[in-house]
Design a protein around this nucleic acid. Structure first.
Length: 271
DNA sequence: CGGCCGACCTGCGGGC
DNA sequence: TGCCCGCAGGTCGGCC
């Protein structure tokens, strides 16, 4: 579910509740994608210094070490009262001096991982190979051009890999390629600089737009306060096969690309 | 090493 | 109604 906008929306709704508070207890449920990597009780007494984001990872910086949180496909963080009974899919809970936050993740592709250091150990393995942050000034058309020139994979696959630009998933890859007029199938190394400039602009515009709308709630994404996102209602192509392209009126098509659904307008996306 | 594919896990909607 | 299949926002590890 959660791509960069949903993770950023989560960060903004969870951060203020956790920052500056002290961990009183930590609890695990069923196994998640990766082991926590420490004894939950060893976290007690540590202070949450800040909540940041790298790609689709949330990073809780503690007075000693860090907790990396990934929402997988179906995860979300929710703020709750510690008296609220666990749901069947609540698999991690952190109670601090001011808040209780739980990871609810039916499919358990998500994870919470402790790492002493962000540049070594478990964290480095998870976030070390991520590409540039798409909403930072580092994300330039030159970065895209340089990466594209070295591979013949499709531009959509390159975006999804995360190794060039972090945090873009299936929704925003489809959306951005549509807005930039680029075919999802186009080999990365065949794209002109001008097209990559448009792609960069499209990515930044769409990610910011979605964050502003609370992210996408395709099925059930809610921010930590339980608020639903609105981006899905204004998606340009994602999930809209058969509907009219807003630019040319022809039917949006869906096809399977690298075992993921791709939505596009065959008429408008010709680069 | 680049690139492809299966695997991980649960829930939901559609077709029969 | 109920079962079975396909599908879903991610990404890692193993293989050629």
């Amino acid at each position: 579910m959660p791509e960069l906008p949903e993770v950023e929306v989560t960060r903004r709704s969870v951060g203020p509740h956790l920052e500056g508070s002290v961990i009183r207890s930590a609890r695990l449920g069923k196994p998640l994608r990766w082991p926590l990597g420490c004894c939950p009780s060893s976290l007690v007494g540590r202070k949450v210094l800040g909540v940041s984001r790298r790609g689709k990872y949330l990073i809780l910086k503690l007075s000693q070490g860090n907790l990396l949180v990934h929402l997988g496909m179906s995860g979300r963080l929710l703020m709750c009262s510690h008296e609220t009974p666990d749901g069947p899919h609540d698999h991690f809970e952190l109670i601090t001096s001011t808040a209780c936050v739980r990871l609810r993740d039916p499919r358990r592709f998500g994870a919470v991982v402790f790492s002493d250091n962000l540049t070594h150990g478990p964290a480095a393995k998870l976030i070390g190979k991520l590409g540039v942050e798409p909403l930072s000034e580092e994300f330039t058309a030159q970065v895209l051009e340089s990466a594209c020139s070295r591979t013949r994979v499709s531009i959509k696959q390159l975006l999804l890999s995360g190794g060039v630009v972090a945090g873009i998933g299936n929704i925003y890859a489809c959306e951005a390629l549509y807005l930039a007029g680029i075919s999802p199938d186009a080999p990365a190394n065949g794209l002109k600089f001008q097209a990559l400039e448009r792609l960069r602009d499209a990515i930044q515009l769409l990610l910011n737009r979605s964050i502003g709308m609370g992210g996408s709630s395709l099925k059930d994404f809610l921010d930590a306060a339980g608020k639903k996102g609105g981006y899905q209602d204004m998606a340009l192509v994602y999930g809209r096969s058969g509907r009219a392209c807003q630019a040319c009126g022809s039917a949006i098509k869906r096809f399977s690309q690298n075992q993921r659904a791709t939505y596009h307008c065959p008429v408008c996306q010709t680069l």
